[in-house]
Amino acid sequence: MLLLLILAGLLAMPAAGGDIPVTALRFSPDGRILAVAGGDRVRLLSPRGNLGGPALPSRLAQVFAVAWSPDGKWLAAGGGRAAVMGAVELWDVESRSLVRTVAKSGDLVYAVAFSPDGRRLVAASADAGLRVVDAVGGETRLALAGHVGPVLSVAWSGDGRSIASGSADRSIRIWNADDGKLQRALTNHAGAVEAVVFSPDSQTLYSASSDATVRVWTPSTGRMKRILRGYEQGVLALDYAPARQLLVAGCADGAVRLANAETGQIVETIPAGAAWLQAVAVSADLDTMAWADASGRHLRVRRLLQ
């Protein structure tokens, strides 16, 4: 069944007098809630169309990233004020209360990810840094330094051992999640690395770049297995649906492209508006995906394959 929602009420935010670009989308682990970040707020929505109440009262001037704890109880929202500060807010979803603010930095947080056990999270920042934080206590455990440009994307491997980060410096870096040591730098992209996604078995890493490619890597060796082409412009967002072996990409030409993760063949292109599409999310449980473009006018949810 097609679930097509145009949530104009969400995005035509009167406070700004216009539409707010959606910067991040994430389904809760059980797929029941869709977290939508845009402007200075995070909305929690039901993918079946029921509004999930008022937005989380974030104190961040702009929110650029959201991540769910594996148990779905907490939501991390990363953002800040450009060139001034960055931070991650940890929210208790059920009570809609702020637990604590962590991973403070001197510039925006662009991406955030929980460890598989939910005890740690990593925040990627515009100041080229990555911070690994104890989610329970709030202490910063590791500072991962090495990128020379804003870090735009981050992912924690399913086995918990590695963290992958993608940067505007065109590199991907694989870090040891326990001691923070750099394991390898992958420098094959010709543009900013906008998204990184591990396969559930941690054996494969997918990266999306403004160079209009998605690349497939073996993170343990650093070997690039494949370059997936056919994206007309930069690929700004990426998520992976393991059961379908599908990569869902949000592109700078406003389209969503679904590609076979093995062959790279694009199986569907969903044209969208004129604006960039920098937020996509997949709910594996519900076999559903969501996307929103940077105009802030459209948020859509549908089954992965129709």
């Binding site: 707010i20 402007g39 001037a61 650029f64 004020r81 450009a82 515009a126 735009l152 920098q278 940077a294």
Partner: peptide, 30 residues
């Protein structure tokens, strides 16, 4: 695209436009 969208739209703030990096930098507030 560079001003409005690049790096997740960091240079504009449509909720509090006067806080936009574009204006803060150009006026040397930052």
């Amino acid at each position: 695209r560079a001003i409005v969208y690049q790096f997740r739209g960091r240079r504009v703030n449509l909720v509090r436009p006067e806080d936009s990096l574009l204006l803060k930098k150009a006026t040397f507030e930052l």
